[in-house]
Write a protein that binds this DNA or RNA. Structure first.
Lengths: 211, 211
DNA sequence: TTATTTACTGAACACTGTTTAGTAATCTTG
DNA sequence: CAAGATTACTAAACAGTGTTCAGTAAATAA
């Protein structure tokens, strides 16, 4: 029995071990399809043990939610050395959509799923700190662009929300499969990556014309 | 074969009764939280009976999915008498977002949830006919706008995908609560409806400048 | 040495979607 | 009319779910 085997080995941070296993399973099979027993089995503990470290399945979810934002913000940080703010804005768009495509479950976790109300109210400041960071980076980039003459006459908050909507909308339609469906039925475009890029490029060149 | 007709009618009645009950429960408690037994209980049949009319829970879902699109397309049709295509495009945006705000579960059902792959492959043409209709209406409006000099030099498919992304992104961030969260933390805007409208107006006036 | 705390688990509870074997009632046919 | 076939339906079971809780063995403290 695996449980007996495990007792022979020494234990370090069990909470972290649970998160690593949960992350792997979530990214592999999705949130709904991963059971607490699956996670427990993977780390050779009983399911009940997870409840000693996390209130419920949602709390495991939110720990990873936070980690997802750290990943995204880290990727955004690598763009800090792109000096031209409009080029940076374009790069941010691509990083955002690529992140969604490469980590669809994390993306779902972070931006698509509606937050259960209790957690939203209690952890409001806690669990979205990194998300707010990401928005702040966007807003600052928009303001920088405006200093260079882009988006003249637009209120920066509204403009940032609009950019976020477009990029998030594209990421969401892309990862849900709806974009691909309409591509197949309505267009002659070769594959989903072409459509994604084409849509993004259309938006970027639209913004470029607002110089 | 009047008797055959009557039998078929009775069968259709029950199928419709199931859908009405499922719709009420889905809109009230959401898809995941509604069980087949819940639906059965509501109409005072056994759960197994539902499986005589629908292959599985997903098929109930897709029947309503289709109905949601019929509702949205119906709302779009009322805009056909708006003669100016750019005004019509703006109105479509508002109808779309309002639909999402007023029917968040239907919206989730139609645009947010990732389609289970089997159904996507089998029912591809069937279950999204109305969705494709909605996209076609958008595409035609974009083309009409271009005839009036808007969006010059943009490929209409890509432009339509971009418009859809933005409007869907706004609807999705709005209904998930993320938009409201960032509003609270980052802006001084009064309430979520103001932000939603402001974001939409920003996008519309951006498009207007492409004349 | 004894008492207490810690770390963990097996089993149970109340659910879930789905299948199947079976039952009554109705319809068809000899 | 009687017997067989068809229909409409269901109770019960299966294998799974998230979660709780009583209980246990080991480590630590008194």
């Amino acid at each position: 029995m695996g449980i007996e085997d495990r007792k022979q080995r020494h234990k370090d941070d069990l909470k972290e071990t649970i998160l690593r296993a949960a992350k792997e399973l979530f990214l592999e099979k999705g949130y709904e399809a991963t059971s607490m027993r699956n996670i427990a089995e993977k780390i050779e503990y009983s399911a009940a043990t997870i409840y000693l470290h996390f209130k419920d399945k949602n709390e495991v979810f939110y720990a990873l939610h936070k980690e997802g934002f750290r990943m995204l913000v880290t990727e955004f940080r690598t763009l800090e050395n792109v000096s031209d703010p409009f080029e940076r804005l374009k790069a941010m768009g691509h990083v955002y959509v690529n992140f969604a495509v490469e980590n669809p479950d994390f993306y779902q976790l972070m931006f698509v799923m509606a937050q259960p109300l209790e957690v939203l109210k209690l952890d409001l400041t806690l669990c979205w700190d990194e998300g707010d960071d990401a928005f702040r980076v966007l807003l600052e980039t928009v303001i920088e662009c405006q200093k260079l003459g882009y988006f003249k006459g637009f209120e920066p908050n509204g403009f940032s929300f609009m950019v976020w909507s477009t990029v998030h909308g594209l990421a969401s339609l892309r990862t849900s499969g709806h974009l691909d469906h309409v591509r197949q039925v309505k267009t002659q475009m070769a594959d989903i990556n072409v459509v994604t890029k084409h849509t993004m490029d259309t938006f970027m060149s639209m913004m470029e014309q607002l110089k």
